[in-house]
Amino acid sequence: MQKFNIPHNFEFTSIITLYAQWIKEGKLKVNSDWNRDLKIKFTLQDPCNIVRKTWGEKMADDLRFVIKTVVGEKNFVDMIPCGTNNFCCGGGGGALQAGLPEQRRAYGKVKFDQIMKTGANYVFAPCHNCHGQMEDIGEFYGGNYHVVHIWTIMCLAMGMLGENERSYLGPDLAEFGL
């Protein structure tokens, strides 16, 4: 809208910013008690579009605040590098549909190695392209991690995740809380 100077009367925000705000305001009562004994490890893919290219450090901080609230600070492992200096997963910019899978996967090897080094069982992907790419490279290079949306783990933590809403969970969480 900025690029084309299109006037508009609304603000634009991300659901992540709202999650962070709602948690701070006490409207979203979520915590990491569910993971206190399980100690399941999570990492995060900072989507280039909302972090480096749009909201910068503020978004990187909001993401970590939300995720640490939901899984527990000790159960969150950052990739190196991360935040605004994160590597792209290789699925962005239309790459998932560019018809160059060999190059896309070679690109994604950087991300795959980063994920594996964290030792995390789960990767949060707050972007659908990242989600698709990380699942694909995980399968291609033989990773043992699962890729999840934030809303899935948030609902799991609040005990409201339905039986049919678990397709991205591994066997360790597939029946948790049912």
Partner: peptide, 28 residues
């Protein structure tokens, strides 16, 4: 750019003229 601009213009028109929302939220 023509397509991109068209999508945005249609979207903005719908939100401002038909719905009147205060905030647009992207889920990713």
């Amino acid at each position: 750019e023509e397509g991109w601009k068209y999508i945005l213009e249609e979207f903005v028109y719908h939100i401002d003229n038909n719905l009147g929302a205060t905030v647009v939220v992207n889920t990713e």
